[in-house]
């Protein structure tokens, strides 16, 4: 089976990527999607030493909030050791852990909000993606001093290490229509949620439209099932050989980088499987050329 393999870029924003995948089997596309969630390492705060804290939020809550702040990981991926080697590591190991420090104090008349930008980082490559995330709101005469250790980790360990908020694929929806045969009820049903589609239909009278825009087609499906049954004028079907993939990053890695890392992770796993199989074969005495 040799289908043409094609990837077409549909939309590219700093934190979002949509592309059309053609000629790849569904299991592979799904594997990439799932690897985006679970097998792409990013930096997140994992250890917090609290020296002083008399704000209203408990140490644990602050530690949790710190962990959820996305940290830039683009360079850190090359610099730091992989999660496998760091999970049991020592927090003093500079090849595993990046150190961030937070020291804030309010005077007797002072009030302030502590932002993620107040985190002092020792490694300029590992810093909060957004500088205006509120961590704590402080009243007068309060203190917060802590040191945080960030490391690489996988999404399967904890959600704070997930580089994506959305990684999804769907079939390409295709609409076939003929204005002369289309029913009035059907058209008005579509117009309620998709006025631009009706405009297109009326303009080109007859034909076929692939919906590559970033929209939900479930209302269209409902219309096609309930209101457009009696005629040949409108048909909605899904091309199950082509997929639209959507990747939305949390900001720590670029979406492109996430997909590449995910593919790498799958390749590594496949190679590992092959070497293990070879090992078993050798052990059982089977010779293979």
């Amino acid at each position: 089976m040799t289908e043409k393999r094609k990837i077409r870029l549909l939309e590219k924003a700093p934190n979002k990527l949509r592309f059309l995948v053609e000629g790849f089997p569904l299991p592979l596309v799904n594997a990439i999607r799932r690897a985006c969630f679970t097998d792409v390492p990013i930096m997140a705060i994992d250890y917090v030493e609290v020296f002083e804290n008399n704000t209203v939020l408990y140490d644990e809550i602050i530690a949790h909030r710190l962990a959820l702040i996305p940290l830039t990981s683009e360079e850190a991926l090359k610099k730091y050791k992989r999660p496998e080697n760091c999970r049991e590591g020592d927090i003093g190991d500079t090849n595993c852990y990046a150190v961030l420090r937070l020291e804030v104090e309010t005077g007797p008349m002072e009030e302030r909000i502590v932002y993620s930008g107040d985190l002092e980082t020792f490694d300029p490559d590992v810093r909060p993606v957004y500088d205006n995330i509120p961590i704590v709101v402080m009243a007068p005469d309060q203190r917060l001093r802590l040191q945080a250790y960030a490391r690489l980790g996988y999404g399967k360990e904890h959600a704070k290490w997930m580089p994506v908020s959305v990684a999804a694929h769907k079939y390409v929806p295709i609409v076939e229509f003929d204005v002369n045969k289309i029913g009035e009820e059907c058209l008005s049903c579509i117009e309620m949620s998709y006025p631009w589609l009706v405009e297109k239909i009326k303009k080109s009278k007859q034909g076929r439209i692939e919906i590559l825009e970033d929209i939900n087609t479930s209302a269209l499906y409902w219309c096609a099932q309930r209101k457009c049954t009696n005629n040949e004028g409108f048909k909605l079907h899904y091309d199950d050989k082509r997929f639209i993939m959507t990747i939305e990053s949390t900001g720590s890695l670029s979406p492109k980088h996430i997909v590449l890392e995910a593919v790498n992770a799958i390749v590594k796993k496949a190679e590992n499987l092959l070497t293990q199989l070879d090992k078993i074969r050798k052990e059982s005495g089977e010779v293979r050329g």
Binding site: L57, N132, P134, E248
Partner: peptide, 20 residues
């Protein structure tokens, strides 16, 4: 209490938008 840093359903960071 205080604005959640991420959306608890999908995981998108949200707190940076809160003040705006």
């Amino acid at each position: 209490m205080i604005i959640p840093i991420r959306c608890m359903t999908c995981g998108t960071p949200l707190a940076q938008y809160w003040e705006e």
